[in-house]
Design a protein around this nucleic acid. Structure first.
Length: 84
DNA sequence: TAGTTGACCGGAA
DNA sequence: ATTCCGGCCAACT
């Protein structure tokens, strides 16, 4: 059965390079506009280098965390991809 | 099954 | 602009 986590993973994996998506957007795509929180929880629990979770940021454009190097790493990656 | 936690969001002070 | 509060959802114990 496809859980929200699976959908989220699929969606995040489809995020094009140089582009960023908010948790709310991902949640909406997953089918639950209010599941932004759950999205973050799932991402944190799910370690997967195939998933560019660094392209997922807060609705305000700020970043919250990164289980793969920390905020600095995330900021660096986004900056390197051309995201401001 | 129920309770707790958290990479969230939006509004109010 | 910053800080606080309540609400929603999924995963974990």
């Amino acid at each position: 059965m496809k859980t929200i986590a699976d959908k989220v993973r699929d969606i995040v994996r489809k995020i094009p390079k140089g582009k960023t998506m908010t948790y709310k957007e991902v949640a909406t795509r997953a089918g639950n506009p209010k599941a932004a929180r759950a999205v973050g929880a799932v991402m944190r629990s799910n370690y997967d280098p195939s998933i560019p979770c660094h392209r997922v940021i807060a609705s305000d454009g700020s970043m919250r965390g990164y289980n793969r190097g920390g905020i600095e790493r995330k900021h660096e990656i986004l900056f390197d991809e051309g995201v401001r």
